[in-house]
Design a binder for these strands. Structure first.
Length: 111
RNA sequence: UGAGUAAGUCAGAUGAUCGCCGGUACAAAACCGCAAGGUUGUACGGGAGGAAAGUCCGAGCUCCGUAGGGCAGGGUGCCGGGUAACACCCGGUGGAGGCAACUCUAAGGCAAGUGCAACAGAAAGCAAACCGCCACCAAAAUGCUUUGCAUUUUGGCGGUAAGGAUGAAACGGUGAGGUAAGAGCUCACCAGCGGAUAGGUAACUAUUCGGCUAGGUAAACCCCACCUGGAGCAAGACCAAGAACGGACACAAAAAGGCAACUGCCCGUUGCUGUCCAAUGGUAGGUCGCAUGAGUUUACUGGCGACAGUAAACCUAGAUAGAUGAUCAUCUAAUACAGAACUCGGCUUAUAGAUUUACUCACAUA
RNA sequence: CGAGGUGUAGCGCAGUUUGGUAGCGCACAUGGUUUGGGACCAUGGGGCCGAAGGUUCGAAUCCUUUCACCUCGA
């Protein structure tokens, strides 16, 4: 199992500027091709979602959803997920299906 | 059985798979970084709370110039005890509430001084009198038994604070005597003040005597007693790397003056300092601080209790964008408030549900 | 994590020290002025002073607790 690789603040800004975006009720995705043979993942949870414990739980849920479905995804992209308000009341199942839905819509799932 | 009071306990459990954080042992000598340093794999065992919260108090610890004296400022405030300390806790006293179990209580001093009380009311502390009540004097009117007496009205000069009206509050309260009318003027009871005696470490309580009166407000200034230097782990220490340390004028030194993380002022004390110009570093480096402590559990002893002492056993999170989650199964009442960030002792606030013990009242039965 | 500050009308602010009437500007409504509008003039409405307790006869103000928001500290 590969470790989940993150990136620095400058890369975040670049992806927000140049990446493609798409959203559903719980999540927003930004992604851009990075020219590498692995994916890099970033997660943003706003202060509006709750205090630090709630935010961290949301981060873990997203990370877990990504990790367990890692092998199904196309490699070579930088991906950012943004949590929208309301996600803090959702269960793991809902988060996972929302994430899969976004990946499928953007053709990042391997056949 | 119902209603209630007080003190506690628990805060899902077990198993399986995957994942996160750090510890120990072994392995590897590869990777990242200029360096200080960090990273990897396997095995073993560990990993949030009763409030971890609010940051409202108190301490340890660290630095600030020595941590000194006085004033100011701030805090506490019935009494005694506990504690490292406290605004906390325990036991008691007074007051308030409740049928009761019991609960609540910032509860020193307005008889040191100053201030305040809108509106209303005559008057809101210092003795005064608006409507009143009463005596005396004068005038007028009326009546009668006509040198006079009685009643009423008006004016004057006094006595009084019973009654009325206002207000949150009106100069002790109620009753009786007393008086021209009244008044602690006198008496009884009650409240309050001062003294004595007895009990108690004390707050205070009980009894008794005295003089009859001293308004409220100190979470108003203030007085009294006691306490109090400031900032905070982003405190602070070490390591690594990098940058700068220049010029002009004046010049013996000292003094004076100035500057200095310490809320204000004064004194004392320490260090630096001739003036001007120019220039420079930094906000994502690493390690420690950082988990053995006023520690936890059990037993015994002392104490009404808070707590203290002795002995034995135990080691129980330590991150630095910040660790506890996901899925399945079984049991179940299990769904609340909520997540350590230097560490303790308290307080306050939030909180689903389950459960234990003691006690009070009401009803029923025996 | 620590330290500090602010909550008053739709918006921006006074008033809190020293407790008794809640005020100012803009905005809003009505009327006047103008051919009409703007500007201007006059009048008016709108507040349980962030929330809950306490002290007091009486609290925006004093005390305690609590909830939001903002600023600063390597």
């Amino acid at each position: 199992m590969d470790k989940i690789i993150s990136f620095n603040n400058r890369t975040f800004q670049n992806i927000f500027k140049s990446g493609k975006s798409y959203g559903n009720k719980l999540l927003v995705i930004y992604y851009v091709s990075n020219g590498l043979d692995y994916n890099r993942l970033g997660i943003t949870v706003s202060k509006k979602n709750g205090n630090s414990v709630v935010r961290h739980r949301v981060k873990r849920l997203i990370k877990e959803s990504y990790r367990l479905n890692d092998k199904k995804f196309v490699k070579g992209y930088d991906i950012i997920f943004i949590a929208r308000v309301g996600i803090e009341n959702s269960s793991y199942c809902e988060v996972q299906s929302a994430l899969k839905h976004l990946m499928k819509k953007n053709n990042l799932l391997e056949k």
